[in-house]
């Protein structure tokens, strides 16, 4: 059933693509319903023409994008405030939710949107790396569980990459010259589910890992080694890890093994691969600070199989991640 569903999802997505991305975007209801003021940069009293700049989606922008608004309006911590008051049904919600005064809003309204604008430029690439990073996190923990001869526990983590993430990057693969690779992900999951002791499990898994690595390698090397670029992705992955780690714990016990393992994989990939990649280009003090903080953070996940009770509380994990984000902030532009 699940497998049939997966194909249905896939077909739906492909159908949408076949109709044409422009068409899908053109049908976006907000295109028709966004207030005229939002598209009229001339209204900006600052006189800055923002017409050519991509607009900032206040529902989805990452902190460093929102920082542009923070800087322009000179309101401390505005970026966090904008994030905390999500979601927004229209840009005017910035006023109705008391994030900005009308006067402040008028100054930046030409630069913001809630339309599902297609991500472009760096934001799109950060998003791409984050999604593939999450995939890798799932795959890494699956591999460790396979090594421990726990195929039942590995199986959900082989499912998540193709079920939760793949459909969302599939459309970008052709333009990045990455061959389609959902088949190998599905094959690995099917094999582990149905024939966990088959000698083909290991080579199939390795092929799946190689396919994800190949997709990541499609990003230009200077991006993959740029501290600013990669730290944005690390931040997103760590935030996701916090949400999942928190969801693994109830009543002082780790009750949801899957979410514990997901979060472990995300942090491990961020720490051992992404951070390593940018280390040579980081200021030495910052590099060692981040490395220490990440190593400390990772102590919450001593083994792929969770301890009965959490070693580190969810609140503590969240505040450690906050501290990492603050430490990394100066290196992010």
């Amino acid at each position: 059933m699940i497998r049939i569903f997966r194909y249905v999802v896939f077909i739906v997505v492909i159908a949408c693509l076949a109709i044409g991305l422009n068409n899908c975007a053109g049908n976006s209801p907000n295109t028709a319903s966004s207030p005229p003021a939002a598209t009229s940069p001339a209204d900006s009293p600052t006189g800055v023409t923002t017409n050519n700049e991509p607009k900032i989606n206040i529902n989805t922008a990452i902190l460093s994008e929102l920082d542009k608004l923070e800087a322009e309006l000179g309101i401390p911590a505005l970026s966090h405030q904008i994030q905390a008051s999500r979601p927004y049904g229209s840009i005017e919600d910035l006023v109705s939710k008391n994030v900005l005064t009308q006067e402040q809003f008028d100054r930046i309204k030409a630069q913001v949107t809630v339309e599902e604008i297609v991500l472009t430029g760096e934001a799109k690439d950060v998003d791409y790396l984050t999604k593939l990073g999450l995939m890798k996190g799932h795959m890494i923990v699956a591999g460790q569980l396979l090594d421990l001869n726990l195929p039942d526990q590995a199986e959900p983590h082989l499912g998540h990459p193709v079920e939760e993430i793949y459909v969302d990057i599939a459309e970008q693969l052709p333009e990045r010259n990455v061959p389609e690779f959902s088949d190998i992900l599905t094959q690995t999951q099917d094999l582990v589910k149905s024939k966990p002791n088959d000698p083909q499990v290991k080579p199939t898994y390795d092929q799946a890992i190689a396919a994800v690595d190949q997709a990541i390698a499609a990003l230009p090397a200077d991006q993959r080694q740029s501290p600013s670029f990669v730290l944005k992705s690390i931040t997103e992955m760590l935030e996701t890890a916090v949400a999942e780690y928190t969801a693994a714990i109830s009543d002082g016990k780790i009750t949801e093994v899957i979410e514990y393992q997901d979060s472990r994989g995300f942090v491990e990939y961020a720490k051992d691969t992404l951070l390593k990649q940018i280390e040579p280009n980081l200021d030495a003090t910052l590099a060692s600070d981040l490395k220490t903080k990440m190593d400390t953070l990772f102590q919450a996940w001593p083994e792929p199989v969770p301890p009965a009770a959490p070693i580190v509380s969810a609140d503590e994990v969240a505040s450690q991640v906050k501290a990492i984000e603050q430490a990394a902030a100066p290196a992010i532009s």
Partner: peptide
């Protein structure tokens, strides 16, 4: 049916 990743929004 299209996934909405953690910390992102859709309409």
């Amino acid at each position: 049916v299209r996934p909405v990743r953690n910390d992102t929004a859709t309409i």
